[in-house]
């Protein structure tokens, strides 16, 4: 029984940070040593030090590309989150709408984005808009499907209680279904954050082969053509770091919103 939640929380476990960091340093050190010892040319495999130097030297152009990719990713995520949520609410209000539209959402999800991206880029004249559409298509589904499940998973007894007090449809949605769906929505959002980035990068690749984009993927392509492999790696590092940062930011958001009530965000004594 937990009459009082006063059990002291265990101190922050530094090993959770230190252990992976140590592994990372070891791998990077080994990599650098291998490159130097075997005298591998940089156009085959650059060492981490060279990659870091390139990142520093080319930060001017790389940061501009990072900005372009980030903007697409965030706009796509924002659109996916809001449209996914709105559509999920519509689905929850009317089974007819859900039955008629859900299959199309699935089709949108299972069609590989690489296959439709060229079409979208041809049809939509504005490059930014076409990239945004591609990234949105990829990011949209997890939010829609998760939130739909969440809205329907409200406690049946609480639904009965709402009926007993003659709550309106709106009250049931606002006070019961939406809060119940929150953990589902947030876990969808975490998946979609990564997917939005992947969608943006893939679309940039497709657009980049036509020389029409300026994001990180385009830098990777460009560097590949020019055999500037250290620069290619530098852009790759930025993509990975962005992905990790998005995931961590969304996890933090989820933790902050759920920590008081949801099992998934509770510290276990």
């Amino acid at each position: 029984m937990s009459e009082t939640p006063a059990i002291p929380q265990p101190g922050f476990n530094w090993w959770r940070v230190a252990a992976p960091l140590l592994i990372g340093l070891l791998v990077l050190g080994g990599w650098e040593w291998l490159v130097r010892a075997r005298e591998i040319p940089p156009y085959i495999l650059p060492g981490p030090v060279l990659i870091a130097e390139t990142l520093w030297r080319d930060w001017g152009s790389l940061s501009v590309s990072l900005g372009v990719t980030l903007r697409i990713t965030f706009l796509a995520l924002l659109l996916a989150a809001s449209l996914g949520l709105i559509l999920a609410v519509l689905f929850a209000q009317s089974p007819v709408i859900e039955m008629s539209l859900f299959p199309y959402a699935v089709i949108l999800q299972v069609t590989p984005i690489v296959a439709i991206a060229p079409l979208i880029i041809i049809w939509v004249d504005d490059v930014t808009l076409s990239l945004l559409i591609c990234a949105w298509i990829v990011a949209f589904f997890p939010i829609l499907s998760n939130t739909t499940v969440g809205l329907n998973s409200a406690d049946h007894n609480l639904l009965d209680l709402m009926r007993l007090y003659r709550a309106s449809r709106w009250q049931v949605l606002w006070r019961l279904r939406l809060p119940a769906a929150m953990p589902f929505f947030l876990s969808g959002l975490r998946i979609s954050g990564g997917l939005a980035l992947i969608g943006a990068i893939v679309a940039e690749f497709v657009a980049g082969t036509g020389g029409r984009a300026s994001g990180l993927a385009y830098r990777i392509l460009e560097s590949g053509y020019q055999l500037q492999i250290p620069r290619m790696f530098a852009a790759l590092v930025l993509v990975s770091v962005t992905g990790i940062a998005i995931f961590m930011a969304l996890s933090l958001l989820s933790h902050l919103l759920l920590r008081r009530w949801h099992e998934s965000a509770m510290a276990r004594p």
């Binding site: 007894n157 609480l158 209680l161 007993l164 009530w261």
Partner: peptide, 15 residues
């Protein structure tokens, strides 16, 4: 005019 107590406490965990 009616109050109802369920078998489980049936509280909203977020409130």
């Amino acid at each position: 005019g009616i109050g109802f107590v369920f078998q489980e406490p049936t509280l909203m965990p977020w409130a």
